[in-house]
């Protein structure tokens, strides 16, 4: 199964289970759950089911394309189910079977591993799903988003697309994955990966990045003042990314980092509160009539 077939198979599987297939967010995200289609929709009482592939950026995970399974940019496939169904685990396992992974012939384990995003004030309780020793999915019951407790809780299932494909294709390095027939992952992404690593670790100017962080924060505040929560959230995401770039350069002391994270978290919280107020004014349109 090529990587693109994997995405198609996941789309089909989750569309058949009532998920809206969203498209990736058009900005750099450090975690797929930062997508507005997960961040905002996890808040409040309205039900929501969505699935999408999302390129994810983790500058600190860059290895100059020299690691077989780590990169500063990779693909997540996120499914968010709200409220959390009783059989979420079973449905997830069924999706693995449908991808062509006979569970009896593998070792599938739910190893406890809670998820947290300090800058978003997000927290989930759950597992890293290990398939034959390889972490292929993060499975979490979201408890908190933007520092707001979630009732009902959502389930967020984040597949690591490359890891799963490596297992399905039986290859030891993501760069050897078949993306499409005759086209390897390395062909598409290897040069870019190495370039990004050089840029992030060696070239990016920390002073300009700090200025960028400050500018994005000011924009977020301005948008919030005008009551525009979605654009404000986008600016907050830019802050979060600037922050992880600075971090990967080792340019932040512990205190500076904590202060910056706290500032972004406050922005995220204000966006979330604004969104909730907006939905309430609209009468929570997605609520099923009782």
């Amino acid at each position: 199964m090529t990587l693109q077939e994997l995405f198609l198979a996941l789309d089909r599987f989750w569309a058949a289970r009532g998920c809206a297939l969203l498209q990736p967010h058009d900005g750099a995200l450090g975690a797929a759950a930062m997508h507005p289609g997960a961040f905002f929709r996890a808040l409040g009482p309205e039900p929501w089911r969505a699935a999408y592939a999302q390129p994810t950026r983790r500058p600190a995970d860059g290895r100059y394309a020299r690691s077989p399974d780590r990169a500063q940019r990779y693909y997540s496939y996120l499914v968010v189910l709200k409220p959390s169904p009783d059989d979420a685990q079973e449905v997830y396992l069924e999706s693995l079977s449908q991808l062509g992974i006979p569970l009896r012939r593998h070792d599938v384990r739910f190893v406890d591993d809670d998820w947290e995003s300090a800058s978003l004030g997000a927290a989930g309780v759950g597992w890293e799903v290990r398939l034959d020793g390889m972490a292929v999915t993060r499975f979490a019951y979201l408890q908190q988003m933007a520092s707001i407790a979630l009732r009902p809780a959502s389930v967020a299932i984040t597949y690591g697309a490359e890891r799963l494909a490596m297992l399905l294709q039986g290859v030891g390095s993501l760069w050897d994955l078949e993306w499409a027939p005759g086209i390897r992952y390395g062909e598409i992404g290897l040069h870019a990966e190495a370039s990004w690593c050089r840029y992030q670790f060696e070239v990016a100017d920390t002073e300009r990045l700090s200025a960028w962080l400050a500018a994005a924060e000011a924009e977020a505040t301005a948008a919030l003042a005008a009551g525009l929560v979605v654009p404000a959230y986008d600016c907050a995401l830019r802050c979060a990314h600037a922050l992880s770039l600075l971090e990967s350069r080792g340019a932040l002391g512990t205190t500076e980092r904590a202060t910056a994270v706290e500032r972004v978290r406050r922005l995220a919280r204000q966006c979330a509160e604004g969104y909730l107020a907006e939905r309430e004014r609209l009468g929570f349109p997605l609520m099923q009539p009782a």
Binding site: D69, D132, M134
Partner: peptide, 13 residues
């Protein structure tokens, strides 16, 4: 055998 191969790949990564 499949389980072993997966674990070996993971360890070497």
């Amino acid at each position: 055998d499949q389980v072993r191969a997966g674990n070996e790949r993971m360890l070497s990564a």
